[in-house]
Simulated assay, not measured.
Amino acid sequence: MTLLTKRMVEKPWGKDTLPMPFVAPLGQRIGEVWFESPPELSSILVKYIFTSEKLSVQVHPSDAQAAALGEKDRGKEECWLVIAAEPGATLGIGFKQPVDAEAMRRAALDGTIEDLMVWHPVAPGDFFYIPAGTVHAIGAGVSLIEIQQNSDITYRLYDYGRPRELHLDKGIAVARGEAYANGLHNPVHDDGTATLADGPFFAVARIIGLPEWDSLTYPGGNLLVIPLRGTINQADTALEPGDCYALSDIHALEFGADSASLLVWQA
Score class of each variant (00 low, 15 high):
residue 125 G to K: 04
residue 13 W to F: 01
residue 97 Q to R: 14
residue 3 L to N: 10
residue 216 L to G: 03
residue 253 L to G: 08
residue 115 D to Q: 15
residue 8 M to W: 06
residue 179 A to T: 15
residue 223 L to W: 02
residue 166 L to N: 07
residue 191 D to T: 14
residue 59 V to A: 00
residue 75 G to N: 09
residue 161 G to P: 12
residue 265 W to D: 12
residue 187 P to Y: 05
residue 13 W to T: 12
residue 127 F to S: 04
residue 28 Q to G: 01
residue 197 A to G: 02
residue 26 L to D: 13
residue 226 I to T: 08
residue 186 N to T: 15
residue 195 T to L: 08
residue 63 D to Y: 09
residue 243 D to K: 06
residue 233 N to H: 14
residue 68 A to E: 14
residue 155 Y to I: 03
residue 29 R to S: 12
residue 190 D to R: 14
residue 156 R to C: 12
residue 162 R to K: 09
residue 37 S to A: 15
residue 236 D to F: 11
residue 30 I to W: 04
residue 44 I to W: 04
residue 251 H to E: 02
residue 196 L to F: 11
residue 192 G to A: 13
residue 137 A to T: 00
residue 28 Q to T: 13
residue 81 L to F: 03
residue 257 A to I: 02
residue 170 K to W: 03
residue 260 A to F: 04
residue 91 L to E: 07
residue 114 E to A: 10
residue 212 E to V: 15
residue 135 V to I: 09
residue 240 E to H: 11
residue 68 A to R: 15
residue 114 E to Q: 14
residue 136 H to F: 07
residue 12 P to V: 15
residue 11 K to C: 02
residue 47 K to Q: 11
residue 60 H to Q: 11
residue 247 L to D: 07
residue 250 I to M: 12
residue 20 M to P: 08
residue 237 T to V: 14
residue 124 P to I: 11
